[in-house]
């Protein structure tokens, strides 16, 4: 099994305790990946419905494919400006 490169920012980074990690995954979807991360990091679950997923620098739809080698970011509610 290989991995996605998972990036964590802001609140997600603090819950996961790291800025990035190699997260082992089979081919799945954005939704599937988020569920898998929440399973491994239960403390993230209460925030899950506020998160968006970006794959290789672009927002993904929930059923978009995610596979080994992708850069996947968990995007908390944005607050720029």
């Amino acid at each position: 099994m290989t991995c996605v490169h998972l990036l964590a920012f802001a609140g997600v980074r603090e819950v996961l305790g790291t800025v990035d990690l190699e997260f082992p995954v089979e081919a799945t979807t954005a939704r599937g990946l988020l569920d898998a991360v929440c399973e491994r990091y239960p403390k993230l679950a209460p925030y899950a419905s506020s998160l968006r997923v970006a794959v290789n620098g672009t927002y993904a739809a929930w059923d978009d494919p995610v596979g080994p080698g992708d850069e996947v970011a968990l995007i908390p509610p944005v607050a720029g400006g």
């Binding site: 920012f9 609140g11 995007i75 509610p77 400006g81």
Partner: peptide, 28 residues
């Protein structure tokens, strides 16, 4: 500016009397 505030992946941590907190980061 509306699109930027809505979409661009930038976050802010607010420092106030109650200590720092990430804006809009709360359990759902």
């Amino acid at each position: 500016i509306d699109a930027i505030k809505h979409r661009v992946p930038i976050w802010k941590r607010e420092h106030g009397v109650e200590g720092p907190r990430w804006v809009d980061w709360k359990e759902q």
